[in-house]
Simulated scan of single mutants.
Amino acid sequence: MSQKTPPKTMEPPKIEYPCPDYPIKVIGKKSDQFQSLVVEIINVHVPDFDESRITIQDSSKGTYCSLRMFITATGEQQLKDLHEQLIASDQVHLVL
C-alpha cells in the first residue's frame, strides 16, 4: 500500500533583499501628470530609480495608462510604503 504525501500549500516566493529588477506596474487614468506623479512617488522610496526603464502602454481606448518599471527593492517596508503612497493618489487605480 502506498502512502500519499500531503498536498503542498502554495507559498508566495521568498524575496531576497536587496532585489534588483523588482517589477512594478502602476495603472491609472491617462493624463499629462500621471507619469510624473508616479515617478515622483517612486523617487521618494527608491533614490536610484532609473526612469529610462519605464515602459508605457495605453489601454485600447486610450482612457488608461500602465507604467511598467523595475526598482531595486530593499525590504518589505519599502515596498509596503511605496504601494500605500501610490494607492493613496487619486490618479492611481491599481498597483501590481
Rank of each mutant, 00 (worst) to 15 (best):
L82V: 04
Q85N: 15
S59I: 02
H83C: 08
L67Q: 07
Q33E: 14
P12R: 11
S59Q: 03
L67T: 04
S66C: 03
L79A: 08
S59V: 03
K14F: 09
V44F: 03
V95R: 03
P20I: 04
N43F: 09
D48V: 10
Q85V: 13
I27P: 02
S2F: 15
G28F: 01
S60F: 02
L79Q: 06
Y64H: 10
M10E: 07
V39G: 07
R68K: 14
E40A: 15
M10I: 15
H93S: 08
Q3T: 15
P47W: 01
M1D: 10
A73D: 07
I54W: 01
K14W: 04
D32T: 07
N43R: 14
R53H: 10
T9K: 14
I24Y: 09
K14H: 14
E84Y: 06
Q3N: 12
F49R: 06
L96N: 14
E51S: 15
L79H: 06
K8T: 12
T9V: 11
K4C: 05
D21E: 13
K80C: 05
S66T: 10
M1F: 12
E84L: 14
T55G: 03
F70T: 13
E16T: 06
K61G: 09
V44L: 08
T9Q: 15
F70S: 15
D48W: 03
D81Y: 06
F49N: 05
V44Q: 09
F49D: 05
G75A: 05
S60T: 08
E11Y: 10
D21M: 10
D90G: 07
Q85W: 01
S60H: 02
Q91W: 09
M1H: 12
T72S: 10
I24G: 03
K29P: 00
I24Q: 03
D32W: 09
I24F: 05
S2Y: 05
D50Q: 12
M69T: 13
A73I: 11
R53N: 12
K29Q: 10
K30L: 09
L94P: 00
L79C: 13
E11I: 12
V26F: 07
L96I: 12
I56C: 03
S31G: 11
T55F: 12
G75P: 01
D32M: 13
P7D: 10
G75W: 02
P12L: 15
S60P: 02
I56V: 14
L96H: 10
Q85T: 13
F49Q: 02
